[in-house]
């Protein structure tokens, strides 16, 4: 589904954050990218969804080269993005947030499908409320539901567990797993919180200094893998 070759990217004046990064995510897989802060997880996510231009390398989605496409065109080709810090539209209602996720996708009617609301009952309940008034965990669910509303082929999540209480983290991880199992969605998630990963993701990739240091590591039991944890996460 996703093929990244020799990707380099960075910020103006800030030098390269990613350099020579290779990663491939097969269709229907749930892959988590782990690494310390500043190693390039968020940069990778932004480069895939097109908010940051790659200076070198290619990004392929389902066999198509999307490296030169603008962010909106990538979204229309099936990339859903849940950014770090959620970035929901706080002044809009919950329902409007979900509609926005759908409205710009070719071939979709603007009405939010029922099964999505059933998956996140709290959002259905609060649909007319201002999104900014939701709790952190609810906002995170909204950000995920907003991305799913566009019926993506590939879902990118950037630290969805950040700032959320542990019980909700479990709930969100479980839902993600459920979606992957039932719909065949491909998921790429950047995380540091092992509770979001262990037992939920299929495989892991470790990012270190802007490149993938190791990939295809089984996610189950990572919490006991002391050598990798200290090497890549300084735990």
């Amino acid at each position: 589904m996703l093929e990244i070759r020799q990707l380099a990217a960075g910020y103006p004046g800030g030098g390269r954050v990613l350099d020579g990064l290779d990663l491939s995510v097969p269709e229907g897989a749930f892959v988590a990218v782990l690494g310390r802060n500043g190693m390039g997880k968020t940069t990778l996510m932004r480069a895939i969804c097109g908010l940051l231009r790659a200076s070198e390398g290619t990004i392929g989605l389902g066999g198509e080269d999307i490296t030169g496409l603008a962010s909106y065109a990538r979204a229309q080709r099936g990339i859903g993005y849940v950014p770090q810090g959620r970035e929901i539209f706080g002044d809009f209602t919950v329902a409007e947030n979900l509609t926005i996720g759908r409205i710009a996708k070719p071939g979709l009617s603007p009405a939010v499908p029922r099964h999505l609301l059933e998956l996140f009952p709290i959002l259905a309940e609060r649909s007319r409320q201002r999104a900014g008034s939701l709790s952190g965990g609810q906002q995170q669910q909204l950000a995920i539901a907003r991305a799913l509303a566009g019926e993506p082929r590939l879902l990118l999540l950037d630290e969805p567990a950040e700032g959320i209480q542990p019980s909700i983290v479990q709930e969100i991880a479980q839902k993600l797993r459920e979606i992957v199992d039932t719909t065949g969605l491909t998921v790429l998630m950047a995380e540091q919180n092992l509770a979001m990963v262990d037992g939920w993701a299929d495989s892991l990739a470790f990012v270190d200094h802007g490149a993938i240091a190791e990939s295809g590591v089984a996610a189950a039991g990572i919490r006991q893998d002391q050598s990798r944890l200290s090497k890549y996460l300084s735990i």
Binding site: C49, G50, L51, A70, S71, Y72, A75, Q76, Y81, P83, E87, F89, D91, F92, E96, T99, I100, G101, I103, A104, K105, R146, A147, G150
Partner: peptide, 18 residues
């Protein structure tokens, strides 16, 4: 709604396909 979304958060709106 599209217009307000771009005004509120240009990058995010673009990442949602606008």
């Amino acid at each position: 709604l599209r217009l307000r979304a771009v005004i509120a958060n240009r990058d995010m709106a673009s990442a949602l396909g606008l």
